[in-house]
Amino acid sequence: MLRPVKNGPAVVACNTCRHSAESRDDGEGVRGGARLAAALHAVKASDDLYAGVEVQEMACLFACSDYCTVHLRAPGKVSYILGRFTPDEEAARAILDYAVHYAASEHGRVPFSQWPAGVKGHFITRSPPEGFVAE
């Protein structure tokens, strides 16, 4: 049930997420999660700025009502679930821009002034790393 992946800062995209609150698939029958995952891979490949953040995929993050969700995680850092994205390049770039700041942070907290506009309002949950709780 578990598949090993590279350990480090990562955006884990739900590749089975709904396209939107209203529809499971887009007009071509493709899930929103698959579109967002593809956009994340394309944006990451387009710029070395994102080299320190992996893009990983898995089926279902169990955030179905929040569609197009990603899990941002790194060892020893608070992790976040973000969702309600439009599955496109603009959202992918905002997610990866935030992930770069997250990767550079000490504990996973990024000052609000550094948040790209495209991630504001998209945070769903945060979780502490194993063995810790957030202050």
Rank of each mutant, 00 (worst) to 15 (best):
T16R: 11
F123R: 10
D25S: 11
C64F: 02
G121H: 09
D97S: 03
G131D: 08
H107P: 00
G33R: 05
S23D: 13
C60N: 10
A59L: 09
F62S: 14
E28S: 13
N15R: 09
I124E: 00
E89N: 10
G108S: 03
A37M: 03
H107E: 13
I81L: 11
R73P: 00
G8D: 03
G108V: 07
A63S: 12
D26C: 04
V30P: 07
A45S: 13
R84V: 04
V55F: 00
A42L: 09
P116C: 09
E106M: 13
E28Y: 03
Y80K: 07
E90R: 13
Y98I: 04
T125E: 09
D48M: 04
E89W: 07
D26T: 04
H71Y: 11
D97M: 02
G108E: 02
V119L: 09
V70P: 00
T86V: 15
S127V: 05
I124Y: 03
I95C: 01
L82R: 02
G83V: 08
L40F: 10
P9S: 08
V12H: 06
A39I: 08
A38M: 07
W115L: 07
R35G: 01
A37S: 13
I81W: 10
K77N: 04
G131E: 05
G27R: 11
D88Q: 05
E130A: 14
A92C: 02
I81H: 10
P128M: 08
V55Y: 00
G29P: 06
F85S: 04
A59T: 08
F123H: 04
L49C: 11
V70C: 03
L61P: 01
P111M: 07
C64G: 06
K6V: 14
P111I: 04
D47A: 07
S127N: 04
L40C: 06
R35K: 14
P129Q: 08
Q56M: 07
G108R: 01
A13K: 04
E28N: 12
